[in-house]
Nucleic acid binder design. Structure first.
Lengths: 209, 209
DNA sequence: TAGATTGTTAATCGATTAACAATC
DNA sequence: TAGATTGTTAATCGATTAACAATC
């Protein structure tokens, strides 16, 4: 199915392919991609088959064609702008992070309710939250990142949705409620760390030592 | 099964319960927890059953007991220290983030190879990467976060593992290779954003407008 | 007791994997 | 051609859900 895990795998294949291309590889087999992405070769071929990607029996896949196919499927043939709401530690880090560019992703502005955060002249400008609607409408922004404190998350989300944003990455533990057609991805840092603690503790008890 | 998704759900139940407790709730039903965590009530009861958590038929669960049970299972009856390797945008944000404390998680130091980053006097001290082993051994640190550039990830990981670290949260796209008994959680920010773009584009085509 | 909720089993659902015919 | 790899179907695996007897 074209579910989240499958799409995440396609993104991994694409990243692996870009590295192969940089090494001047021309052809690649499902086995190679499987190794690179940490899955089975059947999984790779199945994923491709779901999206109608074909190769050559016996000859594998052309690296260049495959990258083009995946980029098209993943909607990465043009650049995309994100805004950040909440210019605290995490928000600021994302605004300054330069690793998104190579994926065609640009963080174009930040918004906060705290006036001491305003900085319209910065490399990535920071505006008052009240300016969000105007900015998003004017620049046709469709994507955003929520990096506010949990209690402010739902409200921030609603401002974003009402302005026309269709997809958000939510760094708060809040379970956002909104229209069906809006895409929400959640990252919960506390939970990630806590789950590591759990599995290490389990390994301690069951494993040796 | 006691897999990652299941543990992540337990963590969500616990967070919901802590909020209920703050509101002076004494009892809770599987239905309530299901709503709070966005799952079915059968899932909640099944999860509890896997970990041997029982309630009262007809009477639901005692909020206090449940929190205690979950905290014990999740290994959160004591505090845990993490170190951060790579004091760039993300690393710094994590070191300054104050939301971990309430979960009993402390970021106790940062490490970097760039001498301009050293700051042994900071609230969270930053040391040379060469000091990592000594620090980790001395303070019996078992958990770490990798926030270096991708090319340095495997090396950073090996330094950590060799010092006795057992669980890491990896912010790079690198697929880390190490001992079986080491726990690795990956967060890939680019991929999270790219998957949002994909699903919004799909909704555009299939949905209205 | 009557009614409601748990705890658990069995059914369902979906995703992954194995296997192999097609074919380059 | 002979050999190797794809593309796809069927089998397997595991997780989620439905259902209901147990029971508070």
């Amino acid at each position: 199915m074209r579910n989240r895990s499958c799409v995440m795998r396609l993104l991994r294949y694409k990243n692996a392919l870009l590295k192969l291309k940089a090494l001047n590889f021309v052809r690649v087999f499902s086995d190679n991609l499987a190794d690179a992405a940490g899955v089975t070769s059947a999984q790779v071929r199945k994923d491709f088959s779901i999206f109608g990607i074909t190769g050559n029996r016996r000859g594998g896949y052309q690296v260049g064609d495959l990258i083009e196919n995946l980029s098209h499927i993943l909607g990465k043939d043009k650049d995309y702008e994100f805004i950040v709401v909440g210019v605290g530690n995490i928000g600021k880090a994302l605004m300054r992070y330069d690793g998104f560019e190579k994926s065609g992703i640009k963080i174009s502005a930040g918004f906060d309710i705290d006036p001491t955060k305003y900085d319209p002249g910065a490399a990535v400008a920071v505006y008052d939250l009240s300016k969000l609607n105007e900015y998003v409408v004017k620049n046709k922004i469709r994507f955003g990142i929520i990096a506010v404190p949990e209690f402010a998350a739902q409200q921030a989300f609603e401002v974003m949705i009402n302005s026309g944003i269709k997809g958000v990455l939510n760094f708060t533990p809040a379970r956002l409620k909104g229209p069906e057609d809006c895409i929400i991805n959640n990252i919960n840092l506390e939970t990630e760390l806590e789950s590591i603690i759990y599995f290490v503790n389990v390994a301690d008890k069951t494993g040796g030592k």
